[in-house]
């Protein structure tokens, strides 16, 4: 019976995820050159990927990104979810919609918006510089661009994660709060003793998917690349790297290899977090 319910998902999943991955695995064993055509190379591509400095540089970058951005984003999202759920906000419906909204902005538009916000010439940064006679550092310079990307990702996904936490809080049985109130527990105590433990699975899942999202960082750097072509290189993140390998360089085989290596690394970390997160408590 379980398969009856899970079957449709698994079938489509097989078609759109597993089959292309299988194909990618197959591709990763070959090399296709503009001159000379396709030849079988065994595991050579894997050897190349593991020693490719461009790959490792990108991986280190997303690792750093992950350590800083994910906690900040989830922290803000959790705070917003708890605040809205507490019922102590004026206009909580407005809060809910407004915080969620950035997630609904298409990528093309996000690039226009942030192009304006970050612009040192005509943008908000430029305007602030002019108005106050200061010189803010350029958010799109190589040293700051990762933080600027982190800011955009946070902006886009705070509302998304907030909703996950909020809807998880919604299924926490209200009787628990009643009982806590009878016991004289304060609001803070209710949060730490009841709400957080009750939504722990949602927290773990959000963390895992944020980790995967960080490792696959692609949209935001590729959007900003037009505005900061020199700060965001074609190997800025592993996923940007596979994209440019595959689409500009026609190196589909090597791109598939990098993607698989990346997938294995990501999966290992995601499993570790999953095991640890579910075991705790």
């Amino acid at each position: 019976m379980g398969w009856g319910f899970a079957g449709p998902f698994v079938a489509v999943f097989g078609l759109v995820f597993l089959a292309p991955i299988g194909y990618a695995l197959y591709l990763s064993l070959f090399q296709d050159r503009l001159i000379g055509g396709t030849s079988f190379v065994g595991l050579d591509n894997y050897g190349k990927a593991l020693t490719d400095p461009r790959f490792w540089e990108g991986l280190t970058r997303v690792g750093l990104f992950l350590l800083v951005q994910v906690p900040v984003m989830l922290g803000i999202a959790l705070f917003a979810a708890l605040a809205i759920d507490s019922g102590r906000l004026y206009g909580k419906t407005f809060f809910r919609v407004a915080i969620f909204l950035p997630y609904a902005v298409p990528a093309v538009v996000a690039s226009l918006i942030w192009g304006f916000m970050y612009g040192t010439q005509f943008g908000l940064v430029g305007n602030i510089n002019d108005a106050f006679g200061v010189t803010l550092p350029n958010p799109l310079s190589p040293s700051l661009v990762l933080a600027s990307i982190g800011n955009i990702v946070t902006w886009e996904f705070v509302g998304y994660n907030m909703l996950i936490f909020y809807s998880a809080l919604k299924v926490v049985p209200r009787s628990l709060y009643e009982a806590a109130a009878i016991d004289g527990a304060g609001e803070w105590r209710v949060v730490t003793a009841i709400k957080l433990p009750a939504i722990r699975s949602a927290l773990v899942i959000a963390t895992i998917f944020s980790i995967i999202g960080s490792f696959q960082l692609f949209n935001e750097p590729s959007i900003l690349q037009k505005l900061a072509p020199n700060a965001i290189t074609s190997d800025f993140t592993p996923n940007v790297y596979t994209y440019s390998l595959s689409f500009s360089g026609q190196q589909h085989n090597y791109a598939a290899t990098v993607a698989i290596v990346m997938g294995v690394l990501t999966a290992i970390i995601a499993y570790a977090v999953q095991l640890r997160g579910m075991r705790k408590g």
Binding site: F13, P20, A24, F215, A256, M262, Y271
Partner: peptide
Amino acid sequence: AVFAVVLGAVAVPGTALAVPTFLM
């Protein structure tokens, strides 16, 4: 296994799977 397989498959970056998916 469903959990493990789905999580593992999601971890593979989609941008690199685009071309295999397109060809399929």
